[in-house]
Design a protein around this nucleic acid. Structure first.
Lengths: 136, 136
DNA sequence: AAGTTCATGCAACTGAGTTGCAAAGTTATT
DNA sequence: AATAACTTTGCAACTCAGTTGCATGAACTT
């Protein structure tokens, strides 16, 4: 059995050709990718299928989404043990020059003390600036 | 001269009737408001004008925008001294029940140590959960 | 008063995301 | 192996936020 198959099955996702392909592409990215960008990686793109594939992946915590404020939500692979709990979350970085969105996997989202009777489910933290690549 | 006039002028925004009205509405909100929501506060709404008004306000740091991931960007008044620098920023809270977006003005966005050669311009931090109102 | 600049209103468009439905594929049942 | 039940895929159509061009109108300049 393929490794990608196992990865899908471990998240309770039925491994279809499409899904394996999308997983493969996601694995090749070093930055987060949007649905429109993913679409462009296919010759004959089927927006809906890709859309639903991403939804399925996200629901099953194989990937996480980042709203970086660019108008299209980005997606990136979770690590194998990720449960998408607040403690699993990392900071994302959007370069205002190259518009790439990086997962800063080594930088956990800092905890915040919410006002009384506010409870925490999730945190989306996007830092905007210039990435190391664009400083060269 | 009206107080709202002064507030606009202090930000180098020419005070028109429209702008004063929008400023007034923004001042009445205790949560951040989106363009579509703002539109609904008018009988005869002119989307474009409101859109450009918000743009102008934001460019001149009278208001700040929050992308809370709901699909429509929210806006809220800055305080008088705000320069929208990273140190001026506060955390925002999106209630997943009532969908209201709160400015947690008392909670500054925590600082993060970026990787080498990454520089900071801005931070968007949105905490999602249940607000005190929805816990009642 | 004429000219310039800026704000407003209208129409039209873009692009991301989403849904319904039918066809194709997969899995389970007998 | 044949049927039924379910899931995934593909297509078309649509929604909705955001945006732009252009013409009109208001305010300000000289």
């Amino acid at each position: 059995m393929k490794k990608s198959d196992e990865r899908l099955k471990s998240r309770n996702i039925k491994p279809t050709a499409m899904r394996e392909l999308v997983l493969k592409i996601l694995g090749e990215q070093d930055v987060a990718i949007s649905l429109p960008e993913l679409e462009q990686k296919f010759e004959k793109a089927e927006r809906t299928t890709l859309y639903r594939t991403l939804k399925t992946f996200e629901e099953n915590k194989l990937i996480h989404s980042i709203d970086d404020g660019t108008g299209s939500v980005k997606y990136a692979l979770c690590n194998e043990t990720c449960q998408c709990h607040p403690k699993d979350l990392h900071v994302h970085f959007l370069c205002s020059k190259c518009k790439q969105t990086y997962c800063l996997n080594d930088i956990p989202v800092p905890s915040v003390n919410l006002p009384t009777h506010f409870t925490l489910e999730n945190i989306n933290m996007v830092v905007k600036g210039i990435c190391s690549n664009c400083h060269k």
